[in-house]
Simulated scan of single mutants.
Amino acid sequence: MANDAALFFGQFMRSPGTTGAVAPSSQRLARVVASPVPERGDPVIVELGPGTGVFTKEIQRRLGGRGHHLAIEINPRLAAGLADRHPGAKIIVGDAVNLPQLLAHHGLERADVVVSGLPWAAFPAGLQDRLLGAIRETLTPQGTLTTFAYVHARTLPPAMRFRRRLMEAFEEVVPSRTIWGNVPPAFVYHARRPRH
C-alpha cells in the first residue's frame, strides 16, 4: 500500500538503525520468509520487527486462526497500525532482546518458528549476539528462525559476521534463491535446530 510505504520511509528517516529499510518487503519475500509456519496444528509463532505487517499478513494467512502469533515491534507508531489491521496477532511494543520474558509474560514457554524482519546488518556485533541468544533460548529444539538479507549487502562485514554467527547458532542454515521481485532484491535464511 502507498500509505504503508510512506509511513515506513518516514520511520526509516527518523530512525534508520531500528527501521533498517526504506520500503516494506514484497509479498514474494513474505511468502518465502513465512514458509516455515506450519499450516496444521497449534504452533507458537513469534515475529520480530513486523514493520507495516507484510510478513504478519502472510503468517496470519498460513495460521488460518490457529495457534499463537506474537509480533514484537519496537516502534510504537508501526505497532499501532499493525494492531488495527491484524487482530489475530498479539502486537507487543517491546525489544526483541527481551524475547524470553515477553513470551513468558503471555503464558508461552517456547516458539516453534521465529520470523524476523530485523535489520541484522545494521546491528553491531554485541546486539546481533544478544538477539540470537534470545531467539535460541526461545525456540523449541526443532525450531526454525527465518530471516532475510539484501543481496547487495551480502559481502559487507556486518552481513558476513551475521551469517557466521547464524551458522554457529544453528545446526542447519539454508539460504533461499534470490527474490528479484523485492526492492532491493533479497534472499532468505532458514536456520533450523538451535544449538544450546
Rank of each mutant, 00 (worst) to 15 (best):
R177V: 06
F148Q: 01
A149Q: 15
S176H: 05
Y150T: 04
R177M: 07
L145P: 00
A159R: 05
Q142C: 08
F162T: 05
S176P: 11
T146A: 15
A149W: 04
Y150L: 07
S176C: 07
P175R: 08
A169F: 04
F148C: 03
M160C: 09
V174S: 14
M160L: 14
T144Q: 05
P158F: 01
R161F: 00
R154A: 15
P175L: 12
R177K: 13
V174D: 08
A153R: 11
E171D: 13
Y150M: 05
T147H: 04
L166Y: 08
A169W: 00
E172Q: 14
L166D: 08
E172F: 12
E171R: 14
R164I: 01
L166E: 07
R154M: 09
E171Q: 11
L156V: 05
M167Y: 02
T144L: 09
T144M: 11
A159H: 13
T147S: 14
V173F: 05
F162E: 05
R163D: 15
L145F: 04
T147D: 01
A149V: 06
Q142S: 14
A153Q: 12
V173N: 05
R165Y: 03
T147L: 10
L145S: 01
A149I: 02
R154V: 12
V173Q: 07
R164K: 12
R161E: 01
T146N: 09
L156K: 14
P157K: 10
A159V: 06
P157R: 10
R163G: 02
P175N: 09
A159I: 03
F170R: 09
T155D: 10
M167G: 09
A153E: 14
R164Y: 05
A159C: 10
P157Y: 04
E171V: 08
R165N: 10
P175S: 12
R177Q: 12
V174R: 15
A149K: 15
F170P: 04
V174P: 03
L145M: 04
A149Y: 10
Q142G: 13
H152C: 01
V151T: 14
L145N: 00
L166A: 11
R177N: 09
M160W: 03
Q142N: 15
A153Y: 13
A169R: 03
G143I: 09
F148V: 03
V151N: 04
M160V: 15
L166F: 06
G143K: 07
A169D: 02
P157W: 05
G143M: 06
R161K: 10
P175H: 08
R154W: 12
R177L: 13
F162I: 12
Q142R: 14
P157N: 07
R154H: 09
G143R: 01
A159E: 09
T144R: 04
A149M: 14
